[in-house]
């Protein structure tokens, strides 16, 4: 399948391109002011306001350091639980801030040599890992990033 390679905290991840709506350059966002540390605020995407989530916080517990290759990936969240991120005209679309987008490629994560991934209950967004010529790469189920412990533990009790 076609995947988008991203680099987060020195680790390479792959996102299924069919789950991605579009990739945007980093734009200004309005800060949320409060809430979990991974929720950065709102961004304006051609008139639609979407929540902006910092992927580094969820994957590596560090905030993203912006650089030239930093991008915002717009995608549709799968979870219905996460009302608190706010409704908008695009349904449950969110922007995902990633430190660096490496590029597109074709990889097969169901191949013989793949590792199924450390299937912890608390990390449903982490998929299988394979090794290619550029090293290890793990599939990131980006639609489920807010279902893991890393995201949930900072939510208010009511939301949980």
């Amino acid at each position: 399948m076609q995947v988008l390679f991203v680099m987060v905290a020195g680790r390479r991840f792959a996102l299924d391109s069919s789950e991605i709506s579009e990739v945007l350059p980093v734009v200004e966002h309005r800060s949320a002011g409060t809430g979990p540390s991974w929720l950065l605020g709102l961004i304006n995407v051609r008139g639609a306001l979407l929540p902006l989530v910092d992927l580094s916080v969820i994957v590596a517990s560090t905030s993203t350091e912006l650089r030239l290759g930093s991008r915002i990936i717009v995608l549709q969240l799968e979870s219905e639980l996460l009302d608190f991120v706010g409704a908008n005209a695009s349904g449950s679309k969110v922007g995902l801030l990633v430190p660096e987008v490496l590029g597109l490629g074709d990889r097969d994560f169901s191949q013989g040599g793949a590792h199924t991934g450390f299937n912890f209950a608390g990390a449903p967004h982490l998929g299988p890992t394979i090794a290619d010529t550029e090293g290890f790469v793990q599939l990131l189920r980006c639609r489920r990033i807010l279902e893991g412990d890393a995201a949930l533990r900072e939510l208010p009790r009511a939301a949980q």
């Binding site: 076609q2 391109s17 579009e22 350059p25 030239l68 987008v101 590029g103």
Partner: peptide, 15 residues
């Protein structure tokens, strides 16, 4: 850079 980004989105749409 914009062109590059555009090509990535084009590839995603094409997929």
């Amino acid at each position: 850079e914009q062109t590059n980004l555009l090509s990535v989105n084009a590839a995603i749409e094409a997929e």
